[in-house]
Amino acid sequence: MKILVCITHVPDTTSRIAFTDDHTKFDSNGVQYIIGPYDDYALARAVELKEELGASITALHVGGPEADPTIRKALAIGADNAIRVNVQGEDSYHVAQQIAAVAKEHEYDLILMGRESIDFNGGQVHGMVGALLNIPSISPVMKLIIEDGVAHMAREIEGGKELVEVPLPLVAGCQEPIAEWKIPNMRGIMSARSKPLEIVAPIDSESRTSTLKFQLPPAKGSVKMIGADQVEELVTLLKNEAKVL
């Protein structure tokens, strides 16, 4: 089985979000970058499937060389090889076209990625890739088992989950608890250095949106503290001041 895991290179969840150049650029000063936490779940499940069934895992990233350490981490966790499409992703459609081009060339049985990136939170790329390849796309997937070429999945819905069966190939947007995050061990880190990371040129593709400007939310006013024996006061404030009751 051939598995493609698409990973994002995103600011750590605890990063301070700020912008430069008159709010047109993300301020990466002092920001630590990680594999997107949802993509990390997808990768962890791919590694488990490899252990259970035997598989080859390719990690794919669309972006510049600054992401190479993040890609090496995916190799250390258990991907066999990696591909980086050497272009800055412009929007979800732009990235989806690049992923679909790689997928068409190598014909994967299973394409996994996170349900969404944690920078733009669009949650669109898996569906777009599925549509571009004309194969099913399922998201958000919280359980994935492969048996005889059929994927058995649990997909989260509002208020619960549904169980879904789909013959391969397919695209899945993953989330917890599909697998436990894996921390690379020393052997993984050493072997990652010699695993192939192929840099490929992008295909011609279009973006359909442009980002004009970023904005930070207004600073939160200070908290109003209420005594533990004054809960009636809280009810009054929620009714008359905040007007939410």
Partner: peptide
């Protein structure tokens, strides 16, 4: 969300 992405394509 899952459907919208496919429709956009």
């Amino acid at each position: 969300d899952a459907v919208a992405a496919r429709v956009s394509v």
